[in-house]
């Protein structure tokens, strides 16, 4: 019985592994093709290649290069989105941060306004926060439950460690809230886009928004997002307004 199960798992792993390897390989090859096209001055082709690479596997370096290629091709919105995604995956990338600053200064665009817990969430990549939370949760649970199970007395250091883990767990919660709310931040893809009053094709135009303007998607209706900008709000399609989290 156990042997049969092990065989099944091994078989599944063998099936998935080539797919994962293929995706990694595609990401690498597209990335290199993009770099070559960028160095050759074909920024549109470079952008396509980086996009393919990011589609195969999301990577901070790929998004940073995608931002550069889009910016050089004159597409402000996609460039800003790509750099934001690079920072989303790896907040420590200074190049992407500087490029964003440069682009916003040049295009007279504002950065998204973040709440305090959203600012905290930018300190580490999302996975790190998740892992810290998970580890601290397991640590606390183990230290509280295992001595009882194994009929050992809870030592002082165990209790101290559990308190430390619990503190760590509580401290990470605002960051998770920040990640959750930041997931709804997005950017306008093209310039001079009409902001719709209703989520319809022939909606009344409220105003026009520029490429790279930050906003928050508050709710959805079909293919439309209700986006709140700093001073106005209205409906945009998902192609016109892309979320940083890619959802």
């Amino acid at each position: 019985m156990n042997l049969w199960r092990l065989t099944l798992w091994g078989f599944l792993l063998l099936l998935v592994r080539p797919v994962l390897a293929d995706r990694q390989e595609l990401a690498e090859s597209s990335f290199q093709a993009g770099v070559a096209a960028y160095r050759g001055g074909d920024f549109s082709a470079a952008a396509r290649a980086f996009e393919n690479s990011a589609g195969a596997r999301a990577a901070a370096g790929t998004y940073q290069n995608l931002g550069n290629a889009e910016w050089q091709a004159g597409r402000v919105g996609p460039a800003i989105l790509a750099w934001e995604r690079a920072l989303w995956l790896a907040p420590a990338i200074t190049e992407a941060r500087e490029n964003l600053q440069l682009a916003r200064d040049t295009a007279q665009l504002a950065a998204p306004e973040l709440t305090w817990y959203e600012v905290i969430s930018t300190w580490l990549p999302s996975g790190w926060w998740a892992i810290i939370t998970a580890l601290s949760l397991w640590l606390v649970a183990d230290l509280l439950v295992l001595p009882g199970i194994f009929r050992r007395r809870r030592a002082g250091w165990q209790q101290a460690l559990a308190a430390l883990g619990l503190t760590l767990l509580l401290l990470t919660l605002p960051a998770h809230a920040g990640w959750h709310t930041r997931s709804n931040i997005g950017f306008v893809m093209e310039g001079n886009l009409p902001l719709r009053l209703t989520p319809t094709e022939q909606a009344q135009e409220i105003t026009r928004v520029g490429a790279g303007e930050p906003g928050r998607c508050e709710r959805r209706y079909g293919n439309y997002c209700f986006v709140r900008f700093r001073n106005t709000a209205g409906w945009l399609t998902r192609e016109e307004f892309k979320l940083i989290s890619g959802r």
């Binding site: 990335f31 596997r57 999301a58 990577a59 901070a60 995956l89 989290s245």
Partner: peptide, 8 residues
């Protein structure tokens, strides 16, 4: 590629 992730 730098830091990678399965999804955004």
């Amino acid at each position: 590629l730098g830091t990678t992730a399965g999804s955004l």
